[in-house]
């Protein structure tokens, strides 16, 4: 009976069959050495996505870095998902990944395989929102050893509107109108807030006072949006060493994906 009532052992603490706290240094000496291998790296670069009412643009620079080194001036961060074969013929979904490039590639291939199997099993293309949710699950399933990437997924939804989804490394996701990710995100995102969502922009004709009416965001036109993307990147290139070399843009409409490449400063 005494055993049941004594919730506290003689040491003043109940004991369990697992280590209660960090052992003293004397223990550490015979324990194996700590892992010194770090499985991640940052390959720099920046991506951004903007959705309009009948298109989505995803863009990314093509520089890959390790520290101060430029690995290569052309390593795309934009990937077509689904479609036929390795050329992704007929695909209408684009994934962009920035962060650790090897994880990015692995993630892209996982998602691409899923979308291709979906088509094989169901005989139709996967919708963007279904693909977006599946991507979230793929990321979340590896939350204890995450894919170290910021992903942006773009396409056109079943109503024909531009669809854009952004993710954190463990799968939280949200549908948005615009999002910048990667090294230059902190430079580009405020610009997009102002130019796409018209934050801090007020009716110019309104009288001065406390109640200044905010400008309401209007659906974007494609040509203007492409210019916006170009401006965002040329500015980021000026101020961030990991962004540059080339700008790859993919414009997704109901007719498919159009790819545009333009050079950026290589300094």
């Amino acid at each position: 009976m005494a055993a049941f009532t004594s919730y506290v052992s003689s040491a003043g603490q109940p004991s369990y069959s697992f280590p209660q706290q960090q052992s003293a240094p004397s223990h550490a000496s015979r324990a194996p050495i700590q892992h010194s291998f770090y499985p991640y790296t940052d390959n720099g670069g920046s991506t951004l996505g903007i959705s309009g009412d009948n298109f989505t643009i995803i863009a990314g620079d093509t520089r890959s870095t390790s520290g101060y080194n430029i690995n290569t001036r052309y390593e795309p961060k934009l990937f077509r998902i689904g479609g036929e074969g390795s050329e992704h013929k007929g695909s209408k979904i684009v994934l962009s990944v920035v962060g650790f490039a090897a994880d990015g590639h692995a993630l892209k291939e996982r998602l691409d395989t899923v979308v291709k199997m979906y088509r094989y099993q169901h005989g139709k293309e996967m919708s963007v929102n279904a693909c977006a949710q599946r991507l979230s699950h793929i990321l979340y399933n590896k939350r204890f050893f995450p894919y170290y990437v910021q992903a942006i997924l773009g396409g056109v939804d079943e109503e024909g509107r531009g669809a854009l989804y952004s993710y954190d490394p463990v799968g939280s996701y949200e549908r948005e109108f615009c999002r910048a990710a990667g090294a230059g995100a902190s430079l580009i995102m405020p610009f997009l807030d102002n130019q796409v969502n018209l934050k801090n922009q007020y009716e110019p004709a309104a009288p001065q006072g406390l109640e200044k009416p905010q400008l309401v965001p209007q659906p974007l036109q494609r040509a203007a949006t492409e210019e916006l993307v170009r401006d965002a990147f040329t500015s980021a290139v000026e101020r961030h060493i990991e962004v540059g070399d080339g700008l790859q843009m993919m414009i997704i409409t109901k007719d498919g994906i159009e790819e545009v490449f333009s050079p950026l400063k290589m300094d």
């Binding site: 890959s64 390790s66 080194n69 290569t72 650790f100 090897a102 590639h105």
Partner: peptide, 25 residues
């Protein structure tokens, strides 16, 4: 093309590993 212990891959007309990335590239 290049590949390393982390699985990082890239391709370029000029490539070097290790010290060569600083001196030879």
């Amino acid at each position: 093309a290049y590949a390393d212990l982390l699985g990082t891959t890239y391709s370029s007309p000029t490539l070097a590993t290790g010290f060569g990335a600083h001196l030879a590239v």
